[in-house]
Amino acid sequence: MDRLLHFGRTLDDLDPPRWGPPAADATALVRTVHALRTVPLGELRPADLRTLVSQQVALPYVLPLAVRLLLEDPLLDAYFHEGDLLHAAVRAPATAWAALPDLHAALRATLTALPPPAMANLPRDTAEAVAAFTA
């Protein structure tokens, strides 16, 4: 899995072209994503990964980082609620997962091994997204 990770480099380095500063009237989310592209991958926090994955930014680089965390703690509360990083990851497009078949298989195996009560407290849309991902 680590073969895909470049901890000291930023998304602007790895996923050209550089985005540069956001427009003056950009939303807070757009400003956040632009800023996160300048952070070295090794310094991205779970909440940052949730934001980038949910916005489908540079998935070949951020999805492996997210999966790495999810394999250790599948129901990680990154920012909003338990399982929010998982929700973002399992909703990533199939094309992103097709490029990362080993990570897809590892996350799928981890999720199918979870006892049913572990999923009981997740929001309904997260539980549905996980079910679709593991089907």
Rank of each mutant, 00 (worst) to 15 (best):
D13L: 03
S54G: 09
A26M: 08
T134S: 08
D13S: 05
L65A: 01
L36T: 02
A94F: 08
P46L: 06
R18D: 05
A58V: 07
L14N: 06
R91D: 06
A131G: 07
L14M: 07
M1P: 09
D48R: 01
L86S: 06
T95D: 15
P22Y: 06
P16A: 07
P115R: 11
V53K: 00
V33N: 01
D102Y: 12
V53A: 04
A23H: 12
A92K: 00
P101R: 14
H87A: 15
P40N: 04
F7R: 15
A26R: 07
P21I: 07
H6T: 03
A89G: 04
L76I: 11
A106V: 12
D13P: 02
A24E: 11
A88Q: 01
L103T: 04
A96K: 11
T110G: 06
H34P: 07
L122W: 11
A78L: 07
D15N: 08
F133D: 03
G8P: 03
V57H: 01
A131K: 11
L69R: 15
G42R: 04
A106M: 13
V39N: 02
A113C: 10
E82D: 13
L11D: 00
A88N: 03
D2A: 14
P117K: 05
Q55S: 12
L36V: 07
T10M: 05
P123G: 11
H34L: 05
R68F: 04
L85W: 01
P93H: 09
R18H: 06
T134I: 15
R50E: 06
V90P: 02
P116A: 10
Q56M: 05
V53I: 13
T27E: 09
V33D: 00
V57G: 01
A47Y: 10
D12G: 05
P46A: 10
R9T: 02
P74L: 04
M119K: 11
V62C: 04
G83A: 10
G83S: 08
P117G: 07
Q55H: 12
W97C: 01
Y61V: 01
A89Q: 02
M119C: 12
R68G: 05
A135F: 13
S54N: 10
V130E: 03
A35P: 04
A113N: 11
A131E: 11
L41K: 00
R9D: 06
T126Q: 04
R3Q: 13
L41C: 11
L49W: 01
Q56L: 04
E72L: 10
L86A: 10
